[in-house]
Amino acid sequence: MTNTFQLDGATVPFEPGQTVMQAALAADQYIPHLCYHPEFKPHGSCKLCTVKVNGRTMASCTMPAEAGLEVESDIDEINALRRTLVKMLFAEGNHFCPSCEKSGNCMLQALGYDLEVHAAGFRHQYPDRPLDASHPDILLDFNRCILCELCVRASGEVDGKNVFALAGRGNSKHLIVNAESGQLKDTNIALTDKAMQVCPVGVILKKRVGFSQPIGDRRYDESPISAQALQDAPRPPSGAEHD
């Protein structure tokens, strides 16, 4: 008999070692998430995947699944928290969806729509984050960075290059690249790198193809992120071992 837990009234089976998020996605149950990526070890930083487990709020991507847990996810109280977190992320960076070439392919924007976030609601922080356009084929627009560290993890764990790192702390935390000059052109990043594919927002962009796919015809224009995430799952968690 397999172990199971309850998620919003549904019975979710799980394998030993799986987290609540991993088991839920595998069982066709969606829990909103941003820094979680099925191919990487759970990170637990964005907190969008917060759920209520036996009455306590926890990040579901890092919470080990246990038999008999009562998990509540799609409830007003938790969705209100998620909306505030999305608003915080919008206010923290410089996000101008109408002019962003990632519009329609952006997870933050898609989550905003899915959770019905209609306005930032907080004062915008307007941080000063200069672009790095030094690389001939790749543009870094730090304005949109949500500090999920997926590029850091992909470049380190998959590409073996450590092109990206995080510096600073608190609200001055920011993404940096590994070069004496501090510029992307002086790194060994390649267009084929995993780090090029994982940014959930619009920081790491391939040059000269920005609008080749028209807006209205993009990933989250087809169906909302909640449906897309389930189509993508389950994928085998390749980076799930401890480092």
Binding site: G44, S45, C46, K47, L48, L85, M88, L89, A91, E92, F122, R123, Q125, I146, L147, G168, R169, G170, N171, S172, K173
Partner: peptide
Amino acid sequence: FAHESCGFCTPCRVGTSMLKQ
């Protein structure tokens, strides 16, 4: 707290700054 937040998670990184403001 805003000065000492490590910046790892969204609520503390952004929330302590907003509380300060």
